[in-house]
Design a protein around this nucleic acid. Structure first.
Lengths: 174, 174
DNA sequence: AAGTGTTATGTTATACTGTAACGACAATTT
DNA sequence: AAATTGTCGTTACAGTATAACATAACACTT
């Protein structure tokens, strides 16, 4: 199958907030951050970031490729993966390991490696700082004598909104 | 490249313990568990489990395929992936999402979803129960109203043994 | 202006990871 | 016996990611 053309709107909760603000906030933050750091948020990188922020769902690399081709007809896998590498390096997006997909990072610039809550129903990814969890993890590493380079904490399940909107839909609660 | 034929011995710590006991323990536990549950640990599944337990490193699916072919010349990708699916369902192995690889699970039968500490140097994967971390996570889910189906907590870095054995090797501590 | 270094991108090819779909076959159930 | 279930063989393909090399664009120097 190769039918990924749009963010899957099936169960999205975007109506609950002004998503255009999410996008523009993320983009202007990214622009400032890159300017400060003296790195280039080139048109391709900017576009990829914008496409990722089109929803709060994690987006696959080849979906991005399909969506960027109309605008950048030379685009190839490497085009997208390079942009993704850059955005990850700069902390502007997260790679969701358990989905082979990518999602915008709200808290760019500082604080990384967060808890990602991934909803199986609406497919949106919520990012949480989870201070206590991180503290408990640090303690664990100290105990184990483990020197951390990077973490991925990914949890799959049903988000609050989906659970609520289908409180009588037993199927979800399995 | 397609040169994965053996567990990478480069930096393994297997000498520090009697690994043959690890293997046989894991296999007999698995046999008992499957018998109890009335599911079949067929020869293929048994072999895949054994191959995974050949080291404490995470093993890739196609490495397993290469290693199983001499014994099971009909083996195809599906052969391996089916066995892996079974072993995961039974809680006998973990899938390491951030590596697209698989590692034996020590604590089969009960308690799942653990903290995996993945060493970038020796590539061994240590599994920890991390009770405090799990408790903090539960609290976080409660706060977020998130209903958990599965978790993956994977941390990359340098394990205690590697850190120690190269205390003067500054390169690792980056 | 010509040369050099650096960064980003274009381009081709290929490697690696994973699944769908269908049939064969055996064991079990009805 | 027929139907069902579980496992495996087999073919084909979908999806994910990178290597390697070429080119372009720009900044800087000489």
């Amino acid at each position: 199958m190769n039918t990924h053309a749009e963010p899957n709107p099936e169960h999205q909760h975007t109506s609950a907030h002004d998503h255009s603000t999410c996008i523009s906030d993320a983009l202007t933050t990214a622009e400032h951050l890159c300017a400060e750091r003296g790195v280039q948020l080139t048109p391709i990188r900017h576009k990829v970031l914008e496409l990722i922020w089109a929803s709060h769902q994690a987006v696959k690399a080849y979906e991005l490729l399909d969506r960027i081709k109309p605008l950048q007809s030379a685009a190839k896998p490497a085009t997208v993966y390079r942009a993704l590498d850059f955005l990850i390096e700069q902390g502007l997006i997260h790679r969701v390991e358990s989905l082979n997909a990518f999602v915008g990072c709200r808290c760019s610039g500082h604080q990384h490696e967060q808890l990602l809550l991934i909803c199986k129903h609406c497919h949106e990814v919520e990012e949480r700082t989870a201070t206590e969890v991180m503290q408990a993890l640090s303690d664990e590493f100290k105990q184990a004598g483990f020197i951390v380079h990077s973490k991925a904490i990914e949890v799959h399940g049903i988000c609050a909104k989906c659970a609520e909107s289908s409180a009588d839909n037993a199927e979800l609660l399995a």
